[in-house]
Write a protein that binds this DNA or RNA. Sequence first.
DNA 1: TATTGTTATACTCTATAACTATA
DNA 2: TATAGTTATAGAGTATAACAATA
Lengths: 148, 148
Amino acid sequence: MPEARLDLLASVLPLAKALRRIEDEAAAGHDLTMWQYAVLQVVAAGPGRNQAEVAARLDYSRNRIVADLDALEERGLLVRRAGADRRANELVITDDGTATMGAVQAAIHRAEDALLAPLSSQDRKALHRLLPKLAASARSSRPPPKAD
Amino acid sequence: MPEARLDLLASVLPLAKALRRIEDEAAAGHDLTMWQYAVLQVVAAGPGRNQAEVAARLDYSRNRIVADLDALEERGLLVRRAGADRRANELVITDDGTATMGAVQAAIHRAEDALLAPLSSQDRKALHRLLPKLAASARSSRPPPKAD
DNA sequence: TATTGTTATACTCTATAACTATA
DNA sequence: TATAGTTATAGAGTATAACAATA
């Protein structure tokens, strides 16, 4: 008989938990939460986006991002800039923010490398190629976001 | 310069969410929660285990499993059997439980196949081989479980 | 009328503690 | 003294609703 097939979630959930812990600890090392670090990343990659856009890119909520932005702005890691549309805030990362974000990311990548250490170099390359592909498929299967 | 390296969580989190939704919906189709289905799976794979052992295998909690077992037992999908150690309950799945579990699992595998459809057959095989490996590494990096 | 940012509220999930009965 | 099961409580995380300002 065929070998029992494992639900993918049985593998992906422990993996997601481990990666979540890696990001939590790396961010906490710089007095950030995982979400605050994620916001810094998105703003660094595309300066000038407004709060709703950043939240949407993270599959986060435009409500909860407010407090995170308050904290980041107070620490001088990014700024809310007034733009043409005076309802929206253009988000821009500061030099301090870029430096902090880079330090957290470096710590994350080191921990990820340790997690992938048991795999062969080929397998690691395959994962770094396949996971983003799968994520794209997962995102396209996502239900339409609700009102908020 | 080297291509920007994506945090693994940026790929794994959307994937985990999609898989979680797949399991939630498949289980709900048989009036189960995802955790109730997971419990059925573990009990089916190893009959006679007690509640704490099953919870530990799922990285679940021995507290929350109680209500799930109440529901499963009331529906006749498994039974709590008395064993030698009269503190512990030996868990055994029933025929009905096996059938229900199999139906949910079949639905999950169909939905997983749809999610993996954009990938080549080779890539799919690579994933089914690599993800369990990675999960093992993730589990071994897990912090020691606390009191409860 | 719709959208952005914001705040407040409610709900779900999870973590922690404590009790009992057995060992 | 420690463990299995159970229950109750508190907390974190998330979802939903409503509002003012602007388009």
